[in-house]
Nucleic acid binder design. Structure first.
Lengths: 124, 124
DNA sequence: TATATAATTCAACAAACATTGAAGTATTAT
DNA sequence: ATAATACTTCAATGTTTGTTGAATTATATA
């Protein structure tokens, strides 16, 4: 998954209403009308936010075979799993490295240590 | 962590350049000048994006005690861990529920089953 | 004191975004 | 055929955002 795609997903999720919307879909809610009632938003605004989630690839769209006026949104499971795994790795706190100065005053001290006190530096 | 705060963090991360920036901080890089070199962006633009990450609470700012012209950005570990855990739960694919129709044509069938075939419905 | 350095802040702009109300599409019900 | 339903798309609005270049702050150096 490319970084632009990850950013697009995160941007799509970076809105409280869309987070609530996605949460409803996760819970099994699906119709625009239900979203509209739950979130107290106009149907066209729901459509707008759903499209952003869809364009990010997080949700699928499906029309009811009996009455195609009804549209059901579902989680795109593969994309969802991929995002989950990517973020779980990316945001892993174990990845946090201590500062590795390559410039600035601290680095000059390090350079000094490198020249004058090579063994002391190894202990730092 | 409130949903608005989560959304703010996700929004802050919803930009390729800020993802790269955060990745550099995670790896131990810190000075504006280094970010500027790595990402090929002007220092003031780096400042802009760093501020958005800071305002989301994801990074800390610290001035060099020897030469306070230099500013070091570091990961806000507690906020980072909290976000990691929250998203790991929120985006967990196991949370995905099957559709639970409460309206639409499918629901009418369910209502029919509820009235006429209560035992058959339990098998669905 | 004057100059250089590291980074931020300001002003300005076009592009993108959320929101609203109205119109449109496709389908079903009467 | 007409009306109702479920939802989308369009047009218009004000707001926010990313980007640029210039000005500014704060500190260190010559």
């Amino acid at each position: 998954m490319e970084i632009e795609k990850i950013a697009q997903c995160l941007k799509a999720l970076g809105d409280p209403k869309r987070l609530l919307l996605l949460n409803l879909i996760l819970n099994g809610t699906q119709c625009n009308c239900e979203f509209s009632d739950s979130l107290n938003l106009q149907p066209n605004l729901i459509s707008h936010h759903l499209r952003i989630l869809k364009e990010a690839g997080l949700v699928n769209i499906e029309r009811d075979p009996r009455d195609s006026r009804w549209i059901y949104y579902t989680i795109n499971q593969s994309a969802y799993k991929e995002l989950h795994e990517y973020l779980n790795n990316f945001l892993d706190p174990d990845r946090i490295q201590p500062r590795q100065p390559t410039c600035g005053p601290v680095n000059e001290v390090m350079s000094f240590a490198e020249k004058i006190l090579p063994k002391a530096k190894q202990q730092i």
